[in-house]
């Protein structure tokens, strides 16, 4: 990955990104020209009122959705020029995503859910086993490996989703309200885990949150209002690049 060299492009660049849902009468502009840069090692908290476009931005960042216009550069490469398979490989090798709605596989144990990204990466069964148990332990779920989502509480499911996103040690972790279903003690534990991942492994993090307490763990807070960046303040230096 790029070093501290000033000539290297930022890890993530949004240039006048817009996103329009629906057509005609029902047309709705969720993003109205978003410019955003995220450097490697940064820990960004995304805040803003409900419906301001936070999840939309995260989905585009995660290459799960395409913008209606504008450019998204990942390590200087325009994502819209990549093929479907290349974007899938980008997700596979560089991105980890925690969904607002968890999106775990039904009737599938926590451990198998967490192993899934490793399986698509072609890791051996032993490596998958070890890494998934470790990731579950990190989110405080040891002993719950064989429970299916239906047998887990909302907060536990959310933590399985986090474990699934971090099990690959991604370059970028994208988390949409990762603490939305957790009590405050759990929330703080998860935030400490994210800070450790950011500081110790240099994982770049973008996280949506409604709570200022949680945002305080980040190095930078971006506020969205009505599909635009309303404010962007740095609260700490980004983690040194690994």
């Amino acid at each position: 990955m790029s070093s501290g060299n000033g000539a290297a492009p930022p890890l993530i660049q949004f240039r006048r990104i817009t996103k329009t849902y629906g057509q005609g009468q029902a047309e709705f502009q969720a993003l109205r020209g978003v410019d955003l840069e995220i450097a490697e090692g940064d820990f960004v908290a995304v805040m803003g009122p409900s419906g301001s476009g936070k999840s939309t931005v995260m989905n585009i960042l995660g290459c799960l959705d395409s913008p209606s216009s504008g450019d998204y550069l990942f390590q200087g490469v325009p994502v819209q020029d990549l093929s479907r398979n290349q974007r899938a490989l980008l997700r596979r090798h560089y991105l980890g995503f925690v969904f607002q709605g968890f999106n775990l596989l039904a009737r599938t144990s926590a451990q198998e859910n967490v192993e899934l990204p490793l399986l698509y990466r072609g890791e051996s069964p032993e490596a998958r086993h070890r890494a998934s148990r470790e990731a579950l332990a990190r989110v405080g779920l040891n002993g719950w490996e064989h429970h299916t989502p239906a047998e887990l509480s909302g907060g536990q499911q959310q933590r399985v989703a986090i474990a699934r996103a971090i099990v690959t040690n991604p370059l970028v972790l994208l988390a949409d309200e990762p603490t939305g279903n957790l009590d405050s003690q759990r929330s703080h534990e998860i935030m400490e885990l994210l800070v450790r991942l950011n500081r110790e492994q240099g994982i770049t993090i973008a996280m949506v949150t409604h709570e200022p307490d949680m945002a305080a763990y980040a190095s930078r807070i971006v506020h969205f209002v009505d599909g635009r960046v309303a404010s962007d303040e740095r609260t700490a230096e980004p983690a040194p690049c690994s």
Partner: peptide, 19 residues
């Protein structure tokens, strides 16, 4: 419906369409 969501999840975590 359930299977479409399953496919969405698999694609989101990095599965190729062909896989």
């Amino acid at each position: 419906t359930e299977r479409t969501r399953e496919i969405g999840i698999r694609l989101a975590i990095g599965a190729l369409e062909n896989e």
